[in-house]
Amino acid sequence: MAQAAREPDFRTRLQEWIPKLVLSPSVAAMVVFVYGFIAFTVYLSFSDSRMLPSYDLVGFGNYAKLWGLSAWWTAIVNLGIFASLYIVTCTAIGLVLAIFLDQKIRGEGMLRPIYLYPMALSFIVTGTAWKWIMDPGIGIENSMHLWGWTSFEFDWIKDRNMAIYTVVIAAVWQTSGFVMAMFLAGLRGIDNEILKAAQIDGASSWSLYRRIVIPLLRPAFLSAFVILAHLAVKSYDLIVALTGGGPGRATELPATFMYSYTFTRNSMGIGAASAVIMLMTIAAIMTPYLYAELKEKT
């Protein structure tokens, strides 16, 4: 009897602990490998680390040096050009394709996977394909010449001033279909009655979309912006595969800058400082968004 009374007690206590025990490996991993590592990198960004981590602090020295480097400024300016064009173009293409696909298109089931498949590929594959397609020697320029359009020129990938736009082309190719899917889901979620009512009131298709549908897609716009912006800041593989940062330094981005300063130029302190700036940029975009999402959902 006594045992029977005590057993559930033990079991209840065990039941209370099991969930926390199950969660703890993930939490421990997160505390060490994410937040601990972030703290470590922040520390290194204030240290005089060169080839290996060093623990002697030098204050804001690395940050001062970083912002004095023309290579860093090139990377920042490139990121500005790349991110803004990438976000705007992906959003525009995604929105147009979603609205058009939503017009009861025959063959939608065929078109959707064609728009979406690039997202399944690695940026290294995308970069390899576009690298040779845009290569003036064997790619589109050559094809146009062979087809008789001999004055056609497309050598952006070899041109210091234009190379960054080839990165935009390849990146837009990879992700715009995904943005389309996000907008399409948003469009399919809109209540038809609203649209019908507006049409009875005599709204034209154009003003229907401009005044009613697009404002209703606000959450999809926001999600698309956040996803694209953080992808842009993190862009690394595509640059490596497509241009290798070149010609010269014409397509260096913060991610490639960080890698080369940390691991090949023996300036780990400066590399760490650039990583901290990348993290702060992404945190500034993500934190308000995640905060709002979490608050709304629970």
């Binding site: 490998f33 994410v34 601990g36 590592f37 972030i38 470590f40 990198t41 290194l44 981590p53 953080h230 800041v233 993190k234 690394y236 913060p254 991610a255 960080m258 890698y259 940390t262 780990m268 590399g271 760490a272 650039s274 990583a275 901290v276 990348m278 993290l279 992404i282 993500m286």
Partner: peptide, 10 residues
């Protein structure tokens, strides 16, 4: 969403 550059060194 963190840029993985922030954890590469550690």
């Amino acid at each position: 969403f963190i840029p993985f550059q922030i954890v590469l060194i550690p």
